[in-house]
């Protein structure tokens, strides 16, 4: 069905999107790349073609902590987000009054601006004035309120919980939609064959929603990487750098310390890592996302 003119038409049709992305996204990214190879001294760019920013970065004693925290943030956040999203999505897929109601309002966390989300959660999680610690200790579960964001062992996971609160609803709704579109004949057939709940899930539902799972995993990962306001407003990287992640540290280096050469180097490291992970993921699952229109 393909004509030669169609190829040109296609290029013409995708041109605006590609041009916009090249201009507004790739252009600035290229800048960051060149800046990471430029030494910046006293606010002046002094000479391109140096690895000093990368050397400084790898010599920084805080950097390993940042890498570890970022791994929790991105990988832990993505996996937990998709898993809770899947559980909630399965639940929402059931027909009942309760799930109908929930489906209508579950997206509320998604539409609230980040600044508000961060402030509200910070307030609620505070050890002395926060409602969550207050209720937990009133129920007698703990002896006195816990400082969730002041505890270096807890803080990263608390941030992940808030992150999931914000991102999970959409994941759940997408997966719910996918689960509801699983052909009921297939489920019925499996039931007839005596498959239990787990087997029906594993061998009927999962293959049917594979594409959606791939999609939401990639989407969540991209979102979580770009997320900056939540951790920055909630903890500012503290206490003692125990919640310092790439995005907050890049911000700190560039705008607080005015070391934007190092900040750029860190962005490059961050991007390379992510592109590898996501690229690999997309490659492995290429069958399910690439738009094989004429197939």
């Amino acid at each position: 069905m393909n004509r030669r003119s169609d190829t040109w038409l296609a290029y013409f049709m995708i041109l605006p999107v590609v041009a916009a992305v090249l201009a507004f996204v790739i252009g600035p990214t290229w800048d960051v790349g060149t800046l990471s190879l430029t030494s910046v001294v006293m606010g002046q760019e002094r000479g391109f073609g140096t690895l000093s920013n990368f050397r400084a970065l790898f010599a920084d004693p805080v950097f390993p902590t940042v890498v570890k925290n970022t791994a929790i943030w991105i990988l832990g956040g993505t996996i937990l987000c998709v898993m809770t999203g899947l559980a909630v999505g399965m639940f929402l897929a059931i027909d009942s009054k309760m799930t109908m109601g929930l489906r209508a309002i579950i997206l509320l966390p998604w539409v609230l601006p980040d600044v508000v989300t961060a402030m509200a959660w910070k307030w609620m999680l505070h050890g002395q004035v926060g409602v969550i610690g207050d209720y937990i200790s009133r129920m007698g579960l703990t002896d006195g309120a816990i400082s969730f964001l002041g505890n270096p062992d807890l803080v990263m996971w608390m941030l992940v919980i808030v992150l999931i609160w914000r991102k999970m609803p959409l994941v759940a709704l997408i997966l719910c939609a996918a689960i509801r579109s699983v052909p009921s004949e297939q489920l019925e057939a499996a039931r007839m064959d005596g498959a239990n709940g787990w087997h029906r899930f594993r061998f009927v539902v999962v293959p049917n929603i594979a594409f959606s799972l791939t999609a939401v995993t990639v989407i969540s990962m991209i979102w979580i990487t770009a997320e900056f306001t939540l951790p920055w407003v909630m903890t500012g990287g503290g206490p003692a750098n125990s919640s310092q992640i790439m995005s907050t540290y890049i911000y700190q280096q560039s705008f607080q310390f005015f070391n934007w050469g190092v900040g750029s180097a860190m962005s490059v490291v961050n991007l390379v890592f992510l592109m590898t992970v996501v690229g690999l993921y997309l490659y492995i699952n290429r069958r399910s996302w690439a738009a094989g229109g004429n197939s």
Binding site: H126, G127, Q128, I146, S147, N151, P239
Partner: peptide, 17 residues
């Protein structure tokens, strides 16, 4: 207050307490 608590309590919050 506990050290944990003070690391999450800034000047405004402390004034409030």
């Amino acid at each position: 207050p506990s050290g944990n608590s003070m690391t999450e309590t800034n000047f405004r919050d402390t004034a409030q307490l």
